[in-house]
Design a protein around this nucleic acid. Structure first.
Lengths: 338, 338
DNA sequence: TTTTTCATCGAAAACGTTTTCGAAAAGCAG
DNA sequence: CTGCTTTTCGAAAACGTTTTCGATGAAAAA
């Protein structure tokens, strides 16, 4: 069976293409009976309008792009889930692009997105993106962009984040309350917006402590596996190793667990650990992992809804919105007193 | 800055649209010097060809669709990673659709895919899909489809799976060797292809045991959270509860852990557990979880490469290929003797 | 010189929609 | 029967490419 298009329907029905098109879009200029005839045949021949022809004519693609550093990561995959739910509800299609934490990949992807393939972009920066030129250019073409989690500080760009400063503060405070005298802060890179905020929360929490632990131990581990393990092992092998670890991303907490196994360090006795994480199995780990958990699904939902607000009324020049959702600190065994 | 198209470039360069188009595609009919002039201006004006116009004219979209039951799941997100890597290498774009384990969603999605929005489809069925009509119809339009993991038994459709029967057999055998007298098999649904194979492996392993444990305890839990927990709790509350659990998907193992916590059952003393799973934290769980781990990334890669072989030479009518990758059984604490 | 080839380009027709605008027919008032 | 509105439809132009085919002039062959 050949694909059926408007022309075929028109010929079959002795109507013009224009009439068939309008009938299918339920236009008022078409008689009810004609509409029915058209719909019946369209159903019978399983007519599906060609989205590319339609997109070209209407100059909109009914498609959005999601650009994220990685997908094999609970946080991002749950965010994506939230995005998909909203997009589907709006009848939009979702193209996903992975930068794999590579700045050059990010630039190439963003550059491609100028083509008009999508009507809007949802994005989280890769860890070493420090320059926003490519994003500014994309924005200047009129493309609606909403950043989430790892945001770019660009004027008039809506963002969805969590209360990273407060969470960083609370996590550090939590470790201090559990009698850690020295606390190391682990991150992938110092460039990201969230890292700056989380780390600032960490620093300020340390400052406010009456008995200052003094040292500001911030370790930037890079984003590839070998480097991470090495950095952590080095940190934990020092004679004056920290008593607490605050991991700014899940991956670092997992690595810490593995290093502790290797070095025969017992959590939480020898080392207490807390981490930003969306692991659904956090409570089942040995020991269970204390986490600051971000509302990933809601981040996706909200970011997507924000984007659609931009897409639907281009004319909104009221201030760009910055949504901040709350993370929750869940204390578990890895920071426990026992 | 307005978007630049071929017309604009042509006018600027005093050339025809045709010439500009051909120059950009490096056609032999265009003088080298002209090509350079065109490319220079295109770069300067940041020209990006309109993909929809191009797709319409060339009647191919450079896009593939991935249809999966869920994304917030380590297995599927890693598969997606593998797919994306290959697709990007080929210069293709990836549309993802989630069925959320809903058959009606699946039908609607597949129906939409008849529109020609994509050049090929990679798919894993949702758990209660028992009828393949919609897929057969899509295939009959000439759309290349490759199934992975949860496959549809359709003639001439390539598939990528793992050795589910053997793995089911080995997992059961492993529990038997660790002295489980009764073993329950947990699955979401009895409909899926993989479930049939895994369960058959389980059944056959039980049969071959000299001292037959007799009972074939297969429990189909459904796919929503409440039901799963309830089914497992009921199973483990019976006085003659099984000594071993073989979970056919990760989600069921996690639920089992939680139920055991609730019922104060100790793994592996009171109950041994093994599960199909791609959890990266399996070794860090309490106790560490014995798993049959599928090569998710490779499944994605291979499925995508198979799809591209179909897409590139439509004329391949040699037998459809069925790739079977090996899963690996990793024995850990949850089936341990201690 | 005339004819033939070659190199380089442009005109125009697609691809399948959507939309504007005008035409025809039908209804209605006068 | 005339003039007017209303209803229903179709012709045709766009959207931005790609591609076929013919045109042009220059170089090569006769």
């Amino acid at each position: 069976m050949e694909k059926t298009d408007l022309k075929k329907l028109a010929k079959e029905l002795n109507l013009s293409i224009a009439t068939v098109s309008k009938a299918l879009r339920d236009s008022w200029e078409i008689k009810a009976e004609t509409k029915q005839r058209v719909r019946d045949l369209a159903d019978k021949l399983n007519y599906q309008p060609n989205p590319y022809a339609s997109s070209m004519r209407k100059r909109k693609s009914q498609t959005i792009a999601v650009v994220i550093p990685e997908i094999a990561n609970n946080f991002f995959s749950v965010v994506l889930d939230g995005i998909q739910v909203i997009a589907e509800k709006k009848g939009f299609h979702v193209l996903t692009y992975l930068t794999h934490e590579s700045y050059t990949n990010e630039i190439a992807t963003i550059r491609h997105l100028q083509s008009g393939r999508v009507d809007g972009v949802l994005m989280s920066l890769c860890s070493d993106t420090a320059d926003y030129q490519h994003l500014v250019r994309l924005k200047e073409t009129g493309m609606p962009i909403v950043f989430f989690d790892r945001i770019a500080e660009i004027p008039d760009c809506p963002t969805v984040t969590t209360d990273d400063y407060e969470s960083g503060y609370r996590a550090t405070e939590h470790l201090l309350q559990n009698h850690c005298k020295t606390i190391a802060y682990l991150s992938l890179s110092q460039h990201t917006s969230i890292n700056r905020k989380r780390q600032q929360g960490y620093i300020d929490a340390l400052k406010n402590l009456p008995a200052k632990p003094g040292k500001n131990l911030a370790v930037h581990c890079g984003d590839e596996n070998g480097g991470i393990m090495r950095a952590i092992k080095k940190l934990l092998s020092k004679k004056n190793r920290p008593e607490g670890i605050f991991a700014s991303v899940e991956k670092l907490a997992i690595a810490t667990y593995h290093v502790c196994n290797e070095l025969k360090l017992k959590i939480p006795d020898d080392l207490k650990v807390i981490s930003f994480s969306n692991l659904r199995t956090a409570s089942l780990l040995s020991p269970s992992l204390s986490t600051i958990t971000q509302p990933a699904f809601d981040i996706g939902r909200e970011a997507c809804e924000l984007l659609f607000r931009k897409i639907e009324k281009k004319s909104n020049n009221y201030m760009s919105e910055h949504l901040v959702l709350k993370s929750s600190l869940i204390a578990r065994g890895s920071t426990g007193p026992n």
